[in-house]
């Protein structure tokens, strides 16, 4: 880029990797050690017997926890806090859940199609009482396809920074500033892939529309749930979750 020096890009890379390491919620080593800990049949049954309201509230809480780490990742990332507050909010509102979905591939075991949830690995059937089988299966399929890329931690760091810093999000006030940061992050990502001979993954990254569609489906499901249980959502769902998704 004519405007960014190699040192600037290198500095940005190091900053994103550090921000990611500090905010990744669960260490990859721990997630991998726990891979054999799957829920027993009885435990799965007890999750399936929970009411729809209780299961929704649990999942809303787990998503909110994951999102708090993404907010912290954004705050520590070079350039993000220099954007105007409107744009910080626009980017987080549109991108936080997308980042959570990408981060999920670290907590996913492709071999038996399970994901780390509340202390053990769970298959899609555990989430039956949510009443969103199709969405759950789409999310599992997405995690499975991301796993096939065998992302390194550094690749996830830079890729999720790019999911967040997206200058095509509607309602940005300083689009140019976001675009410049996005361009630098793209350079940083490509430079790292070149150094590690991993440029081939560029063609296999999920299309932006895929993440957008999963997030849209999640919001649609929340809308239906809210129509059935408005008081539950109002009284017990985490305020941050409501702010982001309804």
């Amino acid at each position: 880029s004519p405007n960014s020096s190699v040192t600037e890009i290198e500095h940005l890379t190091q900053n994103v990797l550090k921000s990611y390491r500090e905010t990744c919620q669960l260490r990859l080593e721990d997630l991998q050690l726990l891979r054999l800990e799957t829920f027993s049949w009885e435990e799965v049954r007890s999750y399936q017997k929970k009411s729809m309201e209780e299961m929704w509230e649990r999942c809303a809480c787990r998503i909110t926890e994951a999102i708090q780490y993404v907010v912290e990742f954004a705050k520590r990332m070079g350039g993000f806090m220099e954007l105007c507050q409107n744009d910080q909010i626009v980017l987080l509102k549109a991108g936080a859940m997308e980042v959570v979905l990408v981060r999920m591939c670290r907590a996913f075991n492709s071999e038996n199609r399970t994901v780390f949830f509340e202390g053990k690995y769970a298959g899609p059937e555990l989430f039956k009482s949510l009443g969103c089988n199709e969405l759950i299966n789409s999310i599992f399929d997405f995690a499975h396809s991301l796993c096939s890329l065998h992302f390194s931690e550094n690749e996830i760091a830079l890729f999720t920074a790019l999911v967040l810093i997206n200058s095509s999000r509607p309602w940005l006030q300083e689009k140019d500033k976001v675009e410049r940061l996005q361009n630098n992050l793209e350079l940083a990502f490509k430079h790292m892939l070149r150094k590690t001979h991993r440029e081939s993954i560029l063609a296999k990254l999920p299309p932006k529309g895929k993440l957008r569609s999963l997030c849209y489906q999640h919001m649609e499901k929340l809308r239906s749930f809210r129509q059935m249980y408005p008081i539950i959502v109002h009284a017990v769902f985490p305020p941050l979750y409501k702010e982001l998704f309804s």
Binding site: Q68, V71, E72, K75, R76, M81, Q85, Q88, I89, L92, K93, P239, L240, E243, L244
Partner: peptide, 14 residues
């Protein structure tokens, strides 16, 4: 409108 996000963004690194 985005009270919680504002608050999270205004707090220093937590």
């Amino acid at each position: 409108k985005h009270r919680i996000l504002h608050k999270l963004l205004q707090n220093g690194n937590s």
